[in-house]
């Protein structure tokens, strides 16, 4: 547990640089392509380039960005956009709670954990879960800060390209672009799910996603996550009990 900043150590420049270099990976390519699509979409709705870049850098969560741009772009109020964004971004809460204890092994000033949290989104979460076990525990925060910064800068570059190129992507190819992200999330989460609770949660969450969307379209992911995650946890508890018995 972190009580204060008195035992804080400076961050490691070397591991920050290693994190930056690690951001040059397959997932950033996918992310950049998704940002290309977002840039073109926002341009069609009348947003100037600097606003598209500011939205990407300040928010860094694709569903929030799409909801904001689509809501106000189609004549909705700022309040309506803010509510939609807040509801969709609840999913970042369990992701952040799950990731922070793995970064907390580095004794750094507390402010750096809040800076690091800015980078948490599905892609950074997946990359971190896959890579952090191979990073020395006392250097994980420095590494993650580099990784996150690299991802956000490279992906934002994709957004600029999409904006400038706007609408030049042929339709069948655009469908392929949109298919990249779900496939990448599915396979990398399968690779990252090593515990029995994660595997059971993956299967249950997948089955519940579309059903939850029909029942409660605003909080669908949260409900599917809470139920799927609890099923996964229950499977894990049952196994623990059987092994002890």
């Amino acid at each position: 547990m972190h009580s204060g900043d008195e035992d804080a150590q400076p961050l490691s420049g070397l591991w920050f640089a290693k994190g930056l270099r690690a951001s040059l990976c397959f997932s950033v390519l996918i992310l950049a392509l998704v940002f290309v699509a977002f840039g073109a979409f926002a341009r069609d709705l009348g947003f100037p380039l600097w606003q598209v870049v500011l939205i990407g850098l300040s928010t860094w969560a694709m569903p929030s960005m799409v909801i904001f741009v689509a809501t106000v772009g189609q004549g909705g109020t700022l309040a309506a956009a803010a509510i939609g964004v807040a509801l969709s971004a609840v999913r970042l809460l369990p992701m952040t709670i799950a990731l922070v204890p793995h970064l907390n092994t580095e004794k750094a000033r507390r402010i750096w954990f809040y800076v690091a949290s800015h980078f948490i989104a599905i892609t950074a979460y997946v990359e971190a879960i896959l890579r952090l076990p191979k990073i020395p525990p006392e250097r994980r925060l420095s590494f993650f800060l580099g990784l996150g910064l690299g991802l956000i800068l490279l992906a934002s570059g994709g957004g600029v390209i999409g904006y400038v190129a706007g609408g030049a992507v042929p339709k069948p190819l655009a469908a392929g672009l949109l298919m990249l992200m779900p496939l990448f999330f599915l396979l990398s989460m399968t690779a990252a799910a090593t515990s029995i609770s994660d595997r059971a949660a993956l299967v249950t969450g997948f089955a519940l996603g579309p059903i939850a969307h029909l029942v409660e379209p605003q909080l669908d992911l949260l409900w599917a996550g809470l139920i799927g995650g609890s099923v996964g946890f229950a499977v894990h508890r049952l196994r623990c009990r059987r092994e002890r018995a």
Binding site: R91, M95, A98, Y125, G205, A207, G225, G228, G229
Partner: peptide
């Protein structure tokens, strides 16, 4: 962590 995993899986299926 299981909840976070299930959320991502649900997002893919959706």
């Amino acid at each position: 962590r299981a909840v976070a995993t299930a959320i991502i899986a649900a997002f893919v299926a959706k």
